[in-house]
């Protein structure tokens, strides 16, 4: 059947009222309302295959939740095309609802004042899940998520972590094809996070669930999603393997060597001669920093170049892992540049 989720030039613009502060501002707005447009999702192209797990990341306000809402049919796109399981979500909302499930980390889909089991059963009824399937499915989830002690408790008496576990079970009662998780681990402790990830991973492997996950916790992504889509200001900046992110954005990396003795001559120039080195600096007489382009050379080649030229007592390399790259991208240390310089 090919792609489960496709988006072509998917765009969502919000109209936001411009109000000046104070009462007079409000009055002015009443008389002549003015709006600015915010493009929350900007010509996004996506294609996700059945059974894939995709992380959707980007800084606050990048447009992640908006994309999820578009894919769920909760909001109508301003432009572009979108299909989920061959259904246009906003046109055929009910049909789409049978194929998908969504968990918003900061909302619950369970009824606040009644025992969890009643909410789960209600959801089973809403999707007309046959009784036998319901029981089997529930038994598995209760087992893996350790829900047994929680089932008879009203949701309002649950802790956040307990509630999230129940919410996740609620999302899978009707065995959806696609699962959207919008910041599922927000505010959870390490142990609960681990349990949730394990559960989601299991569901993806066993049931062939297609997963799309937004999170600011890179642990979620690293464990669950081989593929990563990065969004910034509504645009897709990167779409590819998680592991490749480093190569794409952090191709310049650093080796720090401690020299056995202060070098004579011009150590910076000597180091810059090594193939692929982009610059070098000497600090405190014996600390030599060398930056190089990972796309044209390797750690090994650069290190052997340094050892050839200097007497070294210690050497350390900068860990250029994806987590570090994402952190540096968000903080502005690395640029969200889209041109590929290889």
């Amino acid at each position: 059947m090919g792609a489960v989720i496709t988006a072509e030039a998917l765009t969502k613009r919000f109209r936001r009222p411009v109000k000046q502060a104070g009462l007079s501002g409000s009055l002015k707005h009443l008389v002549r309302p003015r709006y600015t447009e915010v493009t929350a999702v900007d010509e996004v192209d996506l294609s996700i295959e059945a059974g894939e797990s995709v992380a959707y990341v980007g800084p606050n306000g990048a447009g992640k939740s908006t994309t999820i809402k578009l894919l769920c049919g909760i909001i109508v796109p301003s432009a572009g095309r979108v299909r989920v399981c061959d259904v246009e979500p906003h046109r055929h909302r009910s049909r789409n609802a049978r194929n998908i499930s969504v968990v918003f980390g900061q909302r619950t889909q369970l009824w606040w004042d009644i025992p969890v089991i009643e909410s789960l059963r209600l959801i089973g009824d809403i999707y007309s899940v046959p009784a036998a399937d319901y029981e089997r499915n529930l038994a598995e989830m209760v087992d893996v998520l350790d829900l047994a002690p929680l089932l008879d408790v009203p949701v309002r008496q649950l802790s956040l972590g307990q509630r999230m576990r129940c919410d996740l079970a609620a999302a899978l009662v009707h065995s959806p094809t696609v699962l959207f998780l919008d910041e599922p681990t927000i505010g959870l402790d390490v142990a609960v996070k681990a349990k949730l990830r394990e559960f989601v991973g299991l569901m993806v492997r066993e049931r062939g669930l297609t997963l799309m996950l937004t999170s600011h916790d890179l642990g979620d992504i690293e464990q669950l999603c081989p593929r990563l889509v990065m969004l910034h200001s509504g645009r897709v900046l990167y779409d590819g393997p998680y592991a490749e992110l480093t190569r794409r954005f952090a191709w310049e990396t650093k080796i720090t060597s401690t020299l056995a003795a202060p070098p004579g001559g011009r150590p910076e120039e000597a180091a810059a001669d090594i193939l692929g080195v982009t610059r070098a600096e000497l600090h405190d007489l014996t600390t030599l920093n060398v930056w190089f382009d990972m796309r044209v050379t390797t750690y090994g080649a650069v290190i052997s170049g340094i050892v050839d030229r200097f007497a070294i007592s210690d050497i350390s390399v900068e860990e250029g892992d994806a987590e570090d790259v994402i952190r540096r991208l968000y903080s502005g240390d690395l640029k969200f540049s889209t041109e590929d310089v290889s």
Partner: peptide, 23 residues
Amino acid sequence: MTGLRTHPLPKYLSIARVSAQEA
């Protein structure tokens, strides 16, 4: 664990039932 049921309830009936429980 979940009582004896052989069929799901019609969905709107089920909503009414849960609402009554809520009240």
